[in-house]
Design a protein around this nucleic acid. Structure first.
Lengths: 208, 208
DNA sequence: TGATTATTGTTAAATTATTAACATTGGTTT
DNA sequence: AAACCAATGTTAATAATTTAACAATAATCA
């Protein structure tokens, strides 16, 4: 399977979540245009993405929900499950942990890190919190591959550098500090303030 | 000024944040390639974005940091400040409030909403929390234009419908539920799980 | 069964976003 | 002051992404 466009990968994740909702509703089949409508995209987009992953439905009665969930899983999940840690277990870290915990069978949140003595060695939002000084040991011991970075900005660079040195291969950076990572490490950055300012801009433009 | 591409707006927000950091460091001028390097993009991208907003530096000694901050503000900020509310003041809501409070002179976080009796009528992360039943009154009383939606998924649709009915013009949706909004309301959605799965996918692809 | 409809997979076109190329211009150096 | 350099603004080229178009095919129905 050739490497998929990032946008397609994002949508595959969204498709799967929507399909899981369908299962809850006891819907076993769904048309491309239904799936599209739920996500506010076009049916063509859906069909094209599924084409890219080589999926096609035998029937003309919509996609088999279970089957498609499996197919997407085969594409975006790894064979064995991958371990994830949240670094910085403040409000945002706890929010992420809460959203995440137990949701994905192939991605396990196995640890959090913080240096607040009130948090260290306690279970917070379902994950044990370790001190920053244990990062090396725990990354290796628990085979952690992905770090979700929710530390205060001042710590971001240093902790990233460490995490990468000790074997982290993917980082989701929620801090306001743009990070540098060596090639071979995948970095995804998200900044809330930017999103809010974007909303504000388009609201303003509508008005004027 | 014609409507800018969404991506450019996002980057303008990032430029400004970076420029504000420059001011802290007492740097009063910055080259396009320096600004680009800090954000891990190319200098051409920077110059092109600035071209789009009609900014040009007189000097060849880099951009005047203060001037550029002002110029960007004129583009992405509204004339008078805009009021924002966080709906759902759980971990994520508090995180957003914390990141946001007092950071932007033209965007004021003026209220939060929740229906947890422990939270209602208290000040949380710097903002007063009101019950959901007060949404109509407070949107009108405080002239709230933008809502940041961090409620549990089950509430998302209903609350959005209300918020829009009572005058909200922009929504930043952090819930896992895709929303429908009427035209004239700007919607930006962000889903953490999708981001994490994307990271996992690209980590996996590197390995194999 | 044959015609019709609905839905799909896929190629082609259009749009959007990024990168490259380069002429221009102020500053610097000799 | 002439030659050079560094950085910019802008046009053109490339790449990525989305949308349109449409042939193919299973299901439905007269």
């Amino acid at each position: 399977m050739m490497k998929l466009p990032g946008k397609t990968v994002e949508r595959l994740s969204e498709y799967r979540r929507t399909l899981l909702e369908c299962l809850n509703e006891k819907r076993n089949f769904i048309f491309s245009h239904d799936l599209a409508a739920r996500l506010h995209i076009t049916a063509v987009q859906v069909r094209r993405d599924l084409m890219l992953i080589g999926y096609s439905s035998v029937l003309r009665k919509g996609y088999d929900v279970r089957e498609l969930i499996d197919t997407i899983g085969k594409i975006i999940d790894s064979e064995e499950s991958m371990n994830v840690a949240v670094i910085g277990i403040g409000n945002l870290g706890r929010a992420v942990a809460g959203y995440f915990k137990g949701k994905r069978s192939k991605l396990n949140l196995v640890a959090s890190f913080d240096n607040d003595p009130q948090k260290v060695n306690r279970v917070i939002s379902g994950v044990k919190c370790y001190p920053y000084t244990d990062i090396e040991r725990m990354i290796k011991e628990l085979d952690i591959r992905i770090a979700i970075l929710t530390v205060p900005p001042d710590f971001a660079r240093e902790i990233t550098e460490e995490a990468v040195r000790f074997g982290i291969k993917g980082i989701l950076n929620f801090t306001t500090i743009p990070l540098n990572v060596p090639s071979g490490v995948y970095l995804e950055e998200y900044d809330m303030i930017t999103s809010i300012e974007k909303v504000a801009y388009f609201v303003k433009e509508n008005k004027i």
